[in-house]
């Protein structure tokens, strides 16, 4: 398998605070890779740095062999990387369909129409609510919309930041099942989660972050049974 995303020696600062400390990791094409760790471990910061919203002081970020260390955030999607930000960040004041149109902003009109149909087939709930203002959707529907929006351009890599946040357990199950299916249909996934158990169950590999550093990495199945991971993140 080819390496799709390669992060080498990432160091990110918020002013004097050293938030990400020399992080390196790879994502192979076709994988689900998860970054787990407590709140404040630097997981979201890593995604934002890959997106170009923050800059790493050192090292490099490569996607499909091309250096994207200094990419402008708005060029990311054109490279084939979609980022579903923390808190979903759907456009609350736009309709459901307009949100999807924004997801396909860089595509041709005919492709947008087909991609919207595709999302509606996967999430019939969204089709029922297509003319509704997105801010009136439930949390689960908003997460579906955020994922649907990220799928509009058929990106090769989707980075998801805490898709389980604020959702009822049954919805979390559904969203993770969906992420798994999305991956099975050929999309590589980089998943940031506090819900380590759920994330590791669908992931191929995982990295454990603690205060900005990777402290453990390995196959998801091994991390699930690892004693220290169990203790720290899986509730014993």
């Amino acid at each position: 398998m080819a390496t799709l995303l390669s992060v080498k020696d990432m160091n990110v600062y918020y002013g004097v605070i050293h938030a990400v400390k020399g992080v390196s990791f790879d994502v192979e094409e076709g994988e689900i890779v998860t970054l787990i760790g407590a709140n404040g471990a630097g997981k979201s910061t890593i995604l934002k740095t890959i997106s170009g919203m923050l800059r790493s002081k050192t090292g490099s970020i490569a996607f499909d062999g091309k250096d994207i260390s200094n990419i402008e955030p708005y060029k990311l999607l054109g490279m084939g990387i979609a980022h579903v930000p923390e808190g979903r960040c759907i456009f609350q004041r736009l309709t459901v369909e307009e949100n999807l149109e924004m997801g396909g902003y860089i595509s041709k009109p005919a492709e947008v129409a087909a991609a919207i149909e595709n999302v509606y087939n996967l999430f019939p709930r969204l089709k029922e609510r297509r003319r509704q203002i997105a801010g009136t959707l439930s949390g689960g529907e908003q997460q579906m919309l955020a994922i649907g929006r990220a799928m509009m351009t058929k990106p090769r890599l989707i980075m998801m930041d805490e898709p389980s946040m604020g959702l009822a357990p049954i919805l979390v199950q559904q969203i993770f099942q969906f992420i798994k299916e999305l991956n099975a249909s050929g999309t590589t996934i980089l998943l940031v989660e506090q819900n380590a158990h759920m994330a590791l169950r669908i992931a191929n590999r995982g990295y454990v972050l603690e205060t900005g550093r990777i402290v453990l990495e390995g196959k998801a199945s091994e991390l699930l049974t690892n004693e220290s991971v169990k203790k720290a993140y899986l509730g014993g």
Partner: peptide, 13 residues
Amino acid sequence: EDNRTAQLMGINV
């Protein structure tokens, strides 16, 4: 509404 997310859609802010 949200210029950071708009960027992630490929919109040149």
